[in-house]
Design a protein around this nucleic acid. Structure first.
Lengths: 154, 154
DNA sequence: ACCGCTTAGGATTATATACACGTATCACGA
DNA sequence: TCGTGATACGTGTATATAATCCTAAGCGGT
């Protein structure tokens, strides 16, 4: 006769866990991140840094909090990631008029790194879209957006 | 007249980067991980630890390298993640017959944590599936699998 | 028994992520 | 002007991720 433990954690009980949305998302993200990082290597930046540089470049001169909102990223995470970019002088961080704030903007070196990375990113991106097919890619993008939007509900 | 830099990194040139597969995957993963972690909090473990416990439980007694293969995770990443579980005595790590290897297995405490986490995970999982709808969920799972499989091609 | 090749795994270093907490500054009303 | 609450941000701590390099152990041929 089975104990309560056996009932919930035996093989049959655990198999559905392999379909964990989070586990599979994380798995896919690891794979894709490694792929993009590898493709971007010649530019000397990683895909997280690339995405941040794009965000900063598009936003112009923004506060840390605003940039975090734009990137849908925790503010303190952003702070650490900005440190890396600042160390490489790809961005500039300086006090704003409101002295509580720090304004972030891209430097000339940052623009150069971005210009070097852009064609590499395009290649990586098109390979991913090609493997999935345009239609499935579109669907995936929509589903990912839906998931991010779900955050508001909780 | 525009320089080459302007041609590639102006606003129009950067807008497509917002559709970056990696950026959007990472964004979704952050959101979903926070959601699952929050739901699992009463069990005292995070979703990464939950997934690892499930993998170890299903695999029985496995080597680190084998477990890394099963989890599609870098071996050195796995080592660090196992340290956390071992510190909490949720798993046991001991030398194998082949003394180069270390065998990983779940402890009784690990089973208890898993039993406590399982219903919480189910709740989180069903909420995600509910928001997306069963059909879109199925599609998402397939697309994520396809992406992970893509890793072999590179 | 010894030597070279292979395999298993850890250590170092760097980045990414986020919660909890503390500090500095601002805006506004008494 | 003088609090007082709200806002912007950093720090400490912990986990997650992975590339690079190193060591220990097994294995096979001589």
């Amino acid at each position: 006769m089975s104990t309560q433990l056996d009932l919930s954690t035996n093989r049959a009980g655990l198999l559905p866990c392999l379909g964990c949305a989070c586990f599979n998302l994380r798995k896919a993200t690891r794979a894709v991140t490694q792929f993009y990082d590898e493709m971007l290597r010649p530019a000397g930046i990683r895909v997280t840094q690339f995405s941040l540089l794009v965000a900063v470049s598009l936003a112009g001169s923004v506060t840390v909090t605003r940039l975090a909102e734009l990137s849908v990223m925790d503010r303190t995470t952003l702070t650490r990631n900005l440190e890396v970019l600042e160390k490489q002088q790809l961005i500039d961080v300086s006090p704003g008029k409101d002295r509580r704030t720090r304004m972030v903007s891209i430097t000339m070196e940052g623009r150069e790194a971005l210009a070097m990375a852009l064609p590499l990113w395009k290649k990586a991106q098109s390979q991913v879209v090609e493997v999935l097919g345009a239609s499935r890619w579109q669907t995936l993008q929509e589903n990912l957006s839906e998931i991010v939007a779900m955050k508001e509900l909780s």
